[in-house]
Design a protein around this nucleic acid. Structure first.
Length: 570
RNA sequence: GGGUCCGUAGCUCAACGGUUAGAGCAGAGCGCUCAUAACGCUUUGGUUGGGGGUUCGAAUCCCUCCGGACCUACCA
């Protein structure tokens, strides 16, 4: 049995994520995971919250909570929202877990033993009022190039010039506004990625099937300027994974923690260990997914992420894995996404612009969002959410095409034959033609899902739904019923079987509606079909069903306009 | 500044260098009456951003210009 390990980029702990975050990794990963499970693959689908770093500390302070409490609370919020969207993670972990502490410290020790860690004294801006070192972007001041007064220490938003914090005129803390800053010496660990440049390049070059978006970013980092740069992997923060060499102290690094971008990807592994712990399994249960010396050599590992995450997943994390000298699983395929915009602009947390996951579920159930988001997933370029587009997608695709098909078939059957699959009549040429057409469409859908071409897959699925309505129009059971009831019975038997097929094929996209359909039909088998002809015989004559309520409600114009106004922000 | 991607019908998007550039939505007409005023059929709509080049053949490859988006290593 094929085995696939799937990880979604980790959502940062700092607040509820918006639809752009959802569609950029977690949701497409879920569709893929559900598809592979239906095909009979053994799947391990992992996600977690990314909890460390300055923004988490600041968000906790703003909320007036200890950072550990804040993260625990926000993890629960994000977990509940993930459940609400039916994200079928095998485990939703936390990068602050004990498992991740141990593994991160273990990797650091291995890298140190391999000579890939360098201790570097550097000078960083310290804010006395805030009692912390300030990351570059948390220092504000006047841009020396254009005079913009709110330039950040890493870059001026106004003239887009890259800056060094010491370039700023009248620097101040972006956190407190304090100008009581000083430059202090502090020692940090650097991962000597530059030593692994050739190994990384060789590895990237072997990935000929990766999207250009992915490999071009990797090559840019490998070869731009002086080539791949070493990278600091520690920070002067309180909240994080203490710097240790495995279980031993790291002399001179007391009070420091690992940088989130070092520990976050390791959480993919640690979360799988957390999964094993949660199920009372021993280490071999998770190691068979991650250790090629312990059973993972036949695992295919697929990562999902937004394009901003690509450098870390193509270079830093692989450098950690390769540098450890241990047989950990490297990623086999990276599926990266562009951004989803909101009505022509960016989603904005600070401006309350766009739709956030909690708000979305208050408006409509998960399936509505899942469908539109996957049908419009930003695969080849940035995509744009508008309420008009969302309304059209929901009303036409879900309500009119799929929902109405289910409704007309079940209601016609109930009124003419009762709530059981009609027994009379035989399938004829009309049914044979539809079966043949659907076999081709199923092959296309399957291929697109295997290739993780989700936009095309959604369009194909919609075509499969529409075929049911086309068939009914041609077969016209309502007309046949008057002259040849047996023929009408055969048509409805076929249509009910189509409905069952739709329930199975739609399952990765709209799992709740799929459940409703299959439960109404008393059909429990959700295996991805191979043989359409056989599949359309599965509901046998006499098999009882119940007529479901409306599968999808429509979004009317007034409601759409109201929502658009409510979420305009500003 | 450097890099990547994109520009195709009113809108959102397709199209291994190879028939007449296709779908969905929107628009128009017709049909059906089982169904959520739903469904089906037909149909209007294109100088593929502009210009030049390579080729028997270009939306696709090259050059250039215009326009848009993103990345650029201490936000994550």
């Amino acid at each position: 049995m094929a085995r696939t390990l799937i990880t979604s980029a980790l959502p940062y702990i700092n607040g509820v994520k918006h639809l752009g975050n959802l569609v950029g990794s977690q949701l497409p990963a879920d569709v893929y995971a559900r598809f592979l499970r239906a095909r009979g693959h053994e799947v391990m689908f992992i996600c977690a919250t990314d909890e460390h770093g300055t923004p988490a500390e600041l968000a906790a302070a703003k909320a007036g909570e200890p950072v550990a409490d804040y993260c625990a609370r926000m993890w629960k919020v994000q977990k509940d929202l993930a459940d609400g969207f039916r994200l079928s993670f095998d485990h939703f972990g936390r990068s602050s877990s004990e498992r991740n502490h141990r593994l991160t410290q273990h990797f650091a020790a291995r890298l140190h033993e391999a000579g890939l860690i360098e201790e570097v004294w550097e000078r960083q801006v310290y804010s006395i009022a805030d009692g912390r070192f300030l990351p570059d972007r948390y220092i504000e001041g006047t841009c020396p190039n254009c005079g913009y007064e709110r330039a950040r220490g890493d870059q001026c938003e106004n003239c887009t010039k890259q800056l060094d914090p010491t370039d700023l005129i009248n620097p101040r803390s972006a956190i407190s506004g304090s100008t009581d800053l000083e430059v202090r010496e502090t020692k940090h660990l650097y991962l000597r990625q530059s030593l692994m440049r050739d190994r990384l390049r060789e590895w990237i070059n072997s990935k000929t099937d990766w999207p250009v978006l992915t490999t071009s970013i990797a090559h840019k980092w490998l070869d731009d300027g002086e080539g791949l740069q070493d990278r600091g992997i520690t920070r002067d923060l309180d909240w994080g994974i203490p710097v240790r060499r495995g279980t031993e102290p790291w002399p001179g690094m007391e009070g420091k923690v690992f940088y989130v971008w070092f520990d976050a990807p390791i959480e993919y592994i640690a979360a799988t260990a957390e999964w094993a712990d949660a199920h009372g399994l021993d280490d071999s249960a998770w190691e068979r997914w991650w250790r090629t010396d312990r059973g993972a050599e036949d695992v295919r590992y697929v990562q999902f992420m937004g394009k901003d995450n690509v450098p870390f997943h193509t270079l830093s994390f692989p450098a950690t894995i390769l540098g450890s000298g241990e047989p950990w699983k490297l990623v086999d395929y990276i599926k990266s996404f562009n951004y989803l915009n909101y009505d022509g602009g960016k989603f904005s947390t600070s401006q309350g612009r766009g739709v956030f996951m909690d708000q979305a579920l208050e408006i409509l159930p998960a399936d509505y969002w899942r469908w539109w988001l996957i049908a419009n997933v930003p695969e080849s370029s940035d995509a744009n959410f508008t309420w008009e587009s969302f309304q059209a997608g929901v009303n036409k695709d879900l309500a009119d095409v799929l929902g109405n098909f289910v409704s007309r078939v079940t209601k016609f059957c109930r009124s003419r034959f009762g709530e059981a699959v009609p027994e009379a009549g035989e399938y004829g040429p009309e049914e044979a033609a539809v079966t043949e057409s659907l076999a081709a469409r199923l092959a296309a859908l399957t291929a697109q899902l295997e290739a993780i071409e989700l936009r095309k897959a959604a369009a194909e699925l919609r075509g499969i739904w529409a075929e049911g309505n086309e068939y009914l129009q041609r077969a016209a059971p309502w007309a046949e019923f008057r002259t040849d009831p047996d023929r009408a019975a055969a048509v409805i038997r076929f249509a009910l079987n189509l409905m069952r097929l739709y329930g199975i094929l739609s399952r990765p996209f709209i799992p709740d509606a799929s459940d409703t359909i299959l439960r109404a039909l008393g059909a429990g088998d959700t295996d991805w079909p191979e043989d359409v002809a056989a599949e359309l015989q599965k509901l046998r004559p006499g098999h009882g069903f119940t007529t479901p309520d409306l599968l999808f409600a429509k979004l009317d114009d007034a409601r759409t306009a109201e929502l658009a106004a409510r979420f305009a922000g500003g």
